[in-house]
Design a protein around this nucleic acid. Structure first.
Lengths: 224, 224
DNA sequence: AGTTTTTGTAATATTTTTGTAAAATACCCC
DNA sequence: GGGGTATTTTACAAAAATATTACAAAAACT
């Protein structure tokens, strides 16, 4: 059974979420503040963390930073729940390592769906299996990409870009995130580099190119 | 039992309303001026406030401002009762945070109906509930909207507009309120921008489009 | 009924965002 | 350093989103 850690201070929402997730077959542990959550995380192994960004005491974003930097828990997927839903907040949360984002109010169906896709993604990644999505196969050892049997020759940057996309399908990446992970930049810059590479990548992927969707005002992500 | 606070100076109307609401199963507390009402609100927890705008002493609008800024009572829904022809006052009241309005003279059935819909909304909102209304589901994380299973593609402005409507069904919004919250303007302007977007939104929602009602001279709101 | 006001919406204009070819630069390997 | 490739930047086209305009339709008001 999948274990979920819920970090949320509002008791009404907490109860509602717990009730619904348990009904859906998840085991839920909850904390009403970030400090407690951190302590509990040392003892309990959870598969996913649901985090409200507006918490008393230690702020949600700080909590996220700590989780992402602590051995043993740094790889647990985190889904943000927040009343703030300005573009800016979404981008910030994603850039601090959140896996997905759910503005309040949200429907339980959508929450459950998100949990499931994040879990599926997690399992897949752990298999260490050859990276494959929608018929695009990536051979990590030889840095080669195949689609419909034929090889697609990608440059290094293109390969890294595609790898990020394909290792987390359905996940949204901001342009800055891509610049960080693929290019190693850490400042915000407003170049068209990402767009340019997405463009050539799409072209090289041929008809499959359009699985790379542009997410208006945010960035890119792959999706069926 | 639901408690109602009635703030009304005319004794005839007051008695009439009290009598009828009690007959409908509400518990009614009344005050004939705003100061008394404020004092009483500190002691009694009420579910809804009926406010006559034309009061002696402290004006109704000031009372509304105080209520909306005082912890503990700021979330109590307020329904404005106002003599007819005071369009301007109604707009001002809505923009000061009133939930609905009722022009005098009004029938008791309509008053009871309004009270009930406002109460129903209150309960719903507290659950932190899913953003869904009349079969229109909104997925905040990906800014996607579904209706009857199919996705409806909305632009950001359209999405924000719909979100506001759907998070408070039956609530009336003035054009300026919408301009403030969705567009971030804070001055009064007389563009047709809101109308234009409402129009495209209605069209995109298809048959469900007509849940967005236009409230003559005031603005818009969704309603079954 | 005629006039005025208000709302609906198509059409147009403007702005913003994204796509991409091509030029410019950097990199790499002899 | 030269030739080739990879990468970044530039510049502009294309597309999408948004705002405005203009006018028809509806409603409200004499």
């Amino acid at each position: 059974m999948n274990k979920i850690m819920l970090v949320e201070d509002d008791p009404d929402i907490r109860d509602l979420v717990i009730y619904n997730l348990q009904k859906n077959g998840f085991s839920v542990t909850s904390a009403d503040n970030a400090n407690d959550a951190l302590i509990m995380l040392d003892d309990i192994k959870v598969d996913i963390i649901l985090l409200d960004l507006m918490l008393p005491g230690l702020k949600g974003m700080q909590f996220l930073d700590i989780v992402r930097n602590r051995e043993g828990i740094k790889n647990i997927p985190v889904i943000i729940i927040s009343a703030k839903n300005a573009e800016h907040d979404i981008i910030t949360a994603l850039e601090h390592g959140a896996d997905d984002y759910l503005p309040k109010p949200f429907s339980m169906e959508i929450l459950a769906a998100k949990i499931n896709t994040v879990l599926r993604r997690g399992v897949k990644a752990e298999e260490g299996a050859p990276l494959e999505y929608m018929g695009i196969k990536m051979d990590g050892s030889r840095r080669k990409v195949f689609s419909d049997g034929g090889e697609i020759r990608l440059t290094h940057k293109e390969y890294e870009l595609l790898k990020i996309f394909i290792s987390s399908p359905n996940k949204i990446f901001t342009r800055n995130q891509l610049l960080n992970t693929v290019w190693g930049y850490d400042s915000e810059s407003m170049t068209r580099t990402v767009d340019s590479h997405v463009s050539t990548l799409r072209k090289k992927l041929g008809p499959k190119g359009d699985i790379i969707k542009s997410i208006p005002k945010i960035g890119y992500g792959v999706e069926e």
